[in-house]
Simulated assay, not measured.
Amino acid sequence: MTGVSFHEFRITDSQRLDFHYEIDSETEKKTGEIHFQSNIPIPFDPDSVALALSTMCGSAYRRVRMDLRVSPRARKVVESFLRCELSAPARGGVTPERRRRGNVLSFSGGFDSLAALRLMPDDTNLVSMDFGGRFSTEKPFFDKFRPTVISTNIVGTDFQRNSWSFMGIGAILTAPIHAAKYMTFGSILEAGVDNLRRLPLTSRGQTFPPFAGAGYRNAPYVAGITEIGTAMILVTYCPEVVNDSLASLALPGEEKLYRKYVLASIAAERAGLTVDLKEPPPPATRRPFGRNFTADFLSLYIRRFGGAQVRDAFLTDVPAEIDALSERLALTFYERINTTIMQKFPVELAGGLYERAAVAGLVPYTEDDWREYMIVRDALAPYHPTVAR
């Protein structure tokens, strides 16, 4: 049975929280120290910390202990998410509800979170995570937007693998000071194979439990938009920062950087805009088709509007039937908004989203777009079976 405990919490100047952890299994014990450091004073409320720690655990452990006084409400959320009982001291009393308004964006400065920012209200609060290491290219760029920054050493520990939701720790820890009603990630349509699955509508757009526990409601501004859509938004609203954003999101020679550059180039050309883009070196290695869903999904559009030579700079062994679809289909759905993914988007924010997106040329799918979307999804299913479920 695997268990984890968090203890010896120490707060310094309301800007840094340090604590120890122990992971026990039948074969080994691991110990270490984690820190969260903010660039502004924050309360490090025990409930917020417990919710943040839950994102580091996911459902990976059978036993979880936190030396924090946790309220009954937070305990219920954490235990539901952990799928096990939480061992923690009880905190009495009732936590008063605060009036919440406005938005928080978990902001990395990459294309997708930057596009989300351009679609969101002007008074949106930005929270960035400084993970260091291979993510260190992000900070010099996102610092220009003056976000609240939470630095941590999570990356490289076991906790990085347990749940994607640790990316939202900054928004959870700063929830008491921002008191925002809505929370947004720069997560786009093809960010995960699950987004294209034939899921019931009720399963789309739900607020992830730790974020709901922190008082947020999910507002997925770019969930129905592809990478080409986010590139269209950037070349329309902020072409002057596209090169800096590119430099922040990956290192030279990485496939992701080259792909984003290609999409920005196509977006600018199709919009009739002149954007001075700096071409990065092609990827150091090419990935065979069928290995990465995002690359495979976008390859049809890149082949259609950039040409086979551009597509082949990062992808090999593309099946003939995929190439044939690139030539036969219009593929305009890549430039539009999938409203199925947006079913649970807050109605009160939708007007602003669609108005700003339309300025960049993004409108909801037409009937032809839906037809082609399903053709592409079915063509990818033999290589990525999850989309057929």
Score class of each variant (00 low, 15 high):
residue 85 E to H: 04
residue 38 S to V: 01
residue 280 P to Y: 01
residue 87 S to C: 07
residue 187 S to I: 11
residue 51 L to I: 07
residue 250 A to F: 00
residue 302 I to M: 06
residue 370 W to M: 12
residue 245 S to P: 01
residue 227 E to Y: 07
residue 12 T to S: 12
residue 58 G to D: 13
residue 22 E to G: 02
residue 234 L to M: 15
residue 194 D to M: 10
residue 241 V to T: 13
residue 140 P to I: 08
residue 374 M to L: 15
residue 16 R to C: 10
residue 49 V to F: 07
residue 91 R to P: 01
residue 253 G to S: 00
residue 363 V to W: 01
residue 384 H to V: 12
residue 83 R to Q: 12
residue 268 A to N: 11
residue 376 V to W: 03
residue 44 F to N: 09
residue 30 K to N: 05
residue 8 E to I: 00
residue 17 L to Q: 12
residue 340 T to N: 11
residue 216 Y to H: 06
residue 99 R to M: 14
residue 121 P to M: 01
residue 112 D to I: 01
residue 306 G to Y: 04
residue 218 N to Q: 13
residue 66 M to R: 06
residue 325 L to R: 07
residue 12 T to Q: 13
residue 240 E to W: 05
residue 135 F to E: 09
residue 210 P to E: 04
residue 237 Y to H: 03
residue 49 V to L: 11
residue 149 V to K: 04
residue 312 D to K: 06
residue 241 V to E: 07
residue 8 E to N: 13
residue 238 C to Y: 01
residue 160 Q to C: 01
residue 217 R to Q: 14
residue 291 R to Y: 06
residue 33 E to I: 05
residue 28 E to V: 03
residue 43 P to T: 12
residue 159 F to D: 09
residue 358 A to I: 07
residue 195 N to E: 13
residue 235 V to A: 10
residue 54 S to N: 02
residue 367 E to I: 12
residue 73 R to N: 09
residue 74 A to V: 13
residue 256 K to C: 01
residue 166 F to D: 02
residue 38 S to M: 03
residue 81 F to E: 03
